[in-house]
Design a protein around this nucleic acid. Structure first.
Length: 467
RNA sequence: GUCCCCUUCGUCUAGCCCGGCCCAGGACACCGCCCUUUCACGGCGGCGACACCGGUUCAAAUCCGGUAGGGGACGCCA
């Protein structure tokens, strides 16, 4: 067990999105790789926007991806007394002070500064104030060091330095007495003894403030690793407008968790030219130093390719289980039809998602109620009838019931009657599935069973004869 | 506006730290061919990038400087 302690700290204001999932994955990976501890912490200091539903959605997403945490979930809202204590400590030491400026005044000053092209930072009105108004609402601000620089060594981006003059006295406690984000993270990361903070790129600018806080509080400063953003196809920050961003939405669209994990880990991180990683390989090969410095675009095409790969190589039994909800969504019941595992096997090489697989599996359970007339029109009516009759007849007396045997049977029909395989296979396929996009004839017949096959062929024959 | 970060094929990336093996490799997508009873799978091939400008050097994708473009932050949100 190493001393490494990392955490994933989402704020419960929505579902778990792919960006957060990747951050969580990197944390998890590093913890597993180094035998460290992965902690889940819910950052719900914003009582207004945090919801129980969001917490549940996030946990559901994490579990689906298999990112099991070792400690937590901890809730920041449970630590309010702790934060208060530290705020008081800073005030007592003169490292924080009360500020009576109202939000309105602050907004006005900010806007003015922006207009005049200045940095919209707090002007320090209350920093050196001596008289303390009684009964007036106030916030508490951190007395940030002036002059000099604050810098830190980012595991991904290298050394990053900020002039202290760019930083202002941030609010650490609101008018209502609740603590703010930048303060809470520091207290939490310190008290949870986090050694490495892996988080989104968008936090880089918060880091120097936090470093100052660590130092003011006398806590050791952890290491930081800021992972680049995930962008949409237009290179703008990924949002709903680019399509699905929720991890659970991907599950519902028929993606496998291993595919999403594999996709996400390759977004920003690489191990030479490797593309496919099992969980174990990921853990074994992951190295935070191989995470790229630039943002990457989320590309569904590649995710689809990976998903198809994992479907193709997946365990049919497990896939069958996972397929169930997608079938019931289509009101398909597998009770009176072929074995679902057998069905899955015929579809593994033909589906990119479980949704697609379910769609393609429907005909196995619900006999076609209509046929692809356009496809049928390519053959003479007489030929169709003759083919279906012959096939049904042959099948009725068939002794072989495996795929090879059935395929051989169709070949025999062709040689005996002088037909081409296309003239026999295609009509039969349409008779059995209703359309032209289906698994191999032998596979369908064996999966469906000879009896049901003959029934369907006869039904199609009737349909064609009556036209 | 200010600060911080980023910039290799359409996309994900290797290479960059430790210049030459790179007129830049892999993958997805796309195009073509092959396989084939459909749809797929698979195989083979093709298209396609070092943002730009200077400098250092015998030699630069790799080092240095600048420019441009993009992203992020600037909240009593996290």
């Amino acid at each position: 067990m190493s001393e490494l302690r990392v955490r994933f700290a989402p704020s419960p204001t929505g579902y778990l999105h792919v960006g957060g999932a990747r951050t969580a994955l990197f944390n998890w990976l590093l913890a597993r790789k180094q035998g460290g501890t992965f902690i889940l912490r819910i950052e719900d200091t914003d009582v207004e926007r945090s919801t129980k539903e969001s917490v549940d959605a996030i946990l559901e997403g994490m579990k689906w991806l298999g990112l099991e945490w070792d400690e937590g979930p901890f809730y920041q809202s449970d630590s309010f007394p702790l934060y208060k204590e530290y705020v008081q400590k800073l005030v007592d030491e003169g490292k924080a002070y009360k500020c009576y400026c109202t939000s309105e005044e602050l907004d006005a000053k900010r806007n003015l500064a922006m207009q005049e092209g200045r940095k919209p930072k707090y002007d320090g009105t209350c920093r050196e104030r001596t008289e303390q108004p009684v009964g007036q609402p106030y916030v508490i601000r951190f007395r940030a060091p002036q002059g000099g620089v604050t810098s830190f060594d980012d595991l991904i981006k290298g050394t990053i330095t900020f002039p202290n003059d760019e930083l202002d006295d941030l609010i650490i406690q609101r008018t209502d007495g609740t603590p703010t984000y930048n303060f809470c993270v520091v207290i939490d990361d310190a008290s949870m003894r986090i050694t490495t903070v892996i988080r989104g790129d968008d936090h880089v600018n918060n880091t120097p403030r936090q470093v100052q806080l660590y130092e003011a509080l006398g806590f050791p400063v952890p290491q930081f690793a800021h992972v680049p953003m995930i962008l949409g196809s237009d290179k703008a920050r990924l949002s709903k407008r680019h399509g699905a961003t929720s991890v659970i939405a991907y599950r519902d669209m028929g993606f496998l968790p291993e595919a999403l994990n594999n996709y996400l880990v390759r977004l920003g991180w690489s191990n030479g030219d490797d593309e496919i990683f099992s969980r174990d390989e990921m853990v074994q090969k992951f190295d935070i130093h191989n995470v790229g410095r630039s943002a990457s675009v989320f590309n569904t095409e590649k995710l689809l390719w990976l998903n198809a790969h994992y479907i193709k190589n997946g365990d049919p039994e497990r896939l069958a289980d996972l397929l169930l909800p997608h079938l019931s969504k289509r009101e398909v019941t597998t009770l009176n039809g072929p074995d679902l595992m057998a069905v899955v096997k015929t579809l593994q090489e033909r589906a990119q998602t479980l949704e697609e697989m379910a769609e393609r599996a429907v005909f196995y359970y619900n006999a076609p109620t209509g046929y692809d007339d356009a496809a049928l029109a390519k053959f003479d009516k007489e030929l169709l009838v003759a083919v279906l009759d012959t096939v049904a007849e042959k099948l009725a007396s068939a002794t072989e019931a495996d795929v090879h045997g059935i395929d051989a049977l169709f070949k025999d029909v062709c040689t005996e009657k002088g037909w081409k395989m296309g003239q026999v296979g295609q009509p039969t396929r349409i008779a059995l599935s209703g359309g032209t996009q289906a698994p191999g004839i032998g596979e369908i017949v064996v999966t469906l069973g000879v009896e049901e096959t003959i029934r369907r062929i006869q039904k199609a024959r009737e349909y064609i004869a009556q036209k």
